[in-house]
């Protein structure tokens, strides 16, 4: 086996750091959080995460960071996700189904347009 050159190692490291930081919450374009508290799980949050994982895999996008969190305090509106795009206010989507999630993925996460029909109005968390 030919020996690796120092420049090659530097390149590999740079590439690896870049990919890792994208996935571990670095300079990704969009972060999607699926709320996975007892309420979310009982309402079907696991299916929502599964459909998001499928979308990401099918499109082979590298700039989306998918993660889970606990209860957001709006148990009756679960399943919920929060979509955060760089430089924009986070958007919470409520009462999701797999179909709605797919639509949000197409229109908001890929297309950049908020799907107002499924979104919780900005700042309305206190009113619920």
């Amino acid at each position: 086996m030919p020996k690796l050159k120092i420049e090659d190692l530097v390149k590999i490291k740079e590439k690896a750091t870049k990919t890792t930081s994208l996935r571990e919450g670095g300079p990704y374009k969009t972060k999607i959080t699926v709320h996975m508290g007892t309420c979310g799980i009982a309402a079907g949050a696991r299916k929502i995460l599964d459909s998001l994982m499928k979308e990401i895999e099918e499109r082979d996008t590298k700039d989306i960071f998918l993660t889970t969190s606990g209860c957001a305090g709006l148990c009756s509106r679960e399943p919920m996700i929060t979509v955060e795009s760089t430089g924009k206010a986070p958007v919470k989507y409520i009462e999701l189904t797999e179909e709605k999630t797919k639509e949000i993925f197409d229109k908001h996460i890929i297309g950049g347009n908020i799907v107002q029909a499924y979104a919780l109005a900005v700042g309305s968390e206190r009113a619920v």
Partner: peptide, 10 residues
């Protein structure tokens, strides 16, 4: 699905 959900989030 339960296991990959846990690994994905944590």
């Amino acid at each position: 699905q339960t296991l990959v959900t846990l690994i994905m989030g944590h």
